[in-house]
Design a protein around this nucleic acid. Structure first.
Length: 277
DNA sequence: CCGACAACCTGTGAGC
DNA sequence: TGCTCACAGGTTGTCG
């Protein structure tokens, strides 16, 4: 499910229900996620106030106020491929693959659901900025640190295919397989080109395309291919705007040529042979 | 250092 | 109808 737009859409759906509320109870029904949820997470989280719901990369971060002393901690979720976090005014019956319930003091329930269990939930001290998962992340693509100059400098010595480099979290965060394909289409760059061979001007175009593609997908409520729903259970619409992803053989929306698919690494890569050089 | 690949899981759709 | 296989939004870890 989730690249940056889906996580951000989820964050926006949860934030108004959660900020300022106290966690009444955290229940782990099935701790088997990417890393097993430690037994001490519920007692360490219960009774604490959620001060903010933020996003870094594809991680959703609940900032928890200190219970007695002012130390803050962060409850981190990652959605893997099929994870989703939903808000319910009243708890519905549990379903298969529901893993965690976060019950708030006004009765609101936030429930984590993840069939494939590639997702994670962990409690990290403080802001978590120095945690191994978060410490080495590149810039946020929608913030000011990410622009054509930055991306050119980050890629100018990389021999890997541009699409693989764009999906590298140390270069820029949040760009997964779908939006890497889409951004490269809008920039007119073939996914297989070595990153360092792309001109500075075309890299600038790519940085702009990453931003517009991600921002547009957030506006559309994210992409729903199969599982993804937002915090209110609604599917996204961004998949309706794809130019290349999962469109092998279909005509390019710009020039009519059939879209092609190649595997790069183990990931399907889609491109227009005429528009992308 | 880098790249290639397997691994972690379940569900679904295609093909036979 | 039912079996088997390939593949799916992500990331980590290992090997060469």
């Amino acid at each position: 499910m989730p690249e940056l737009p889906e996580v951000e859409t989820t964050r926006r759906g949860i934030e108004p229900h959660a900020v300022g509320r106290r966690i009444a109870r955290l229940t782990v029904y099935d701790p088997r996620l990417r890393w097993p949820v430690p037994d001490d997470v519920p007692p360490r989280v219960q009774g604490r106030i959620i001060e903010a719901v933020e996003r870094r990369s594809k991680y959703l971060l609940f900032r928890l106020a200190g219970r007695d002393r002012p130390a803050r901690d962060t409850l981190v979720f990652h959605f893997g491929m099929t994870g989703s976090l939903r808000v319910y005014p009243d708890a519905p019956p549990r379903r298969l693959h529901d893993h965690v319930d976060v019950l708030l003091d006004d009765g609101t329930l936030i429930r984590y659901h993840d069939p494939r269990r590639f997702g994670a939930m962990l409690l990290v001290p403080g802001s978590g900025d120095d945690h191994p998962l978060l410490a080495h992340l590149g810039p946020e693509p929608l913030e000011s640190g990410f622009d054509g100059d930055y991306l050119w400098k980050a890629l100018r010595n990389r021999s890997a295919a541009i699409k693989l480099a764009l999906m590298d979290n140390t270069v820029v965060v949040g760009v997964g397989n779908i939006y890497a394909n889409e951004a490269l289409f809008h920039a007119g760059i073939r996914p297989t080109v070595p990153a360092r061979k792309v001109s500075r001007a075309r890299i600038a175009k790519l940085a702009a395309a990453v931003r517009t593609v991600l921002a547009g997908a957030i506006d559309s409520g994210g992409s729903t291919l199969r599982d993804y729903v937002d915090a209110g259970g609604r599917p996204g619409q961004a998949q309706l705007t794809y130019f290349v992803y999962d469109r092998e053989g279909a005509p390019c929306k710009a020039c009519g040529q059939p879209i092609r698919m190649r595997r790069l690494g183990a990931r399907a890569s889609y491109y227009c042979p005429a528009c992308q050089r």
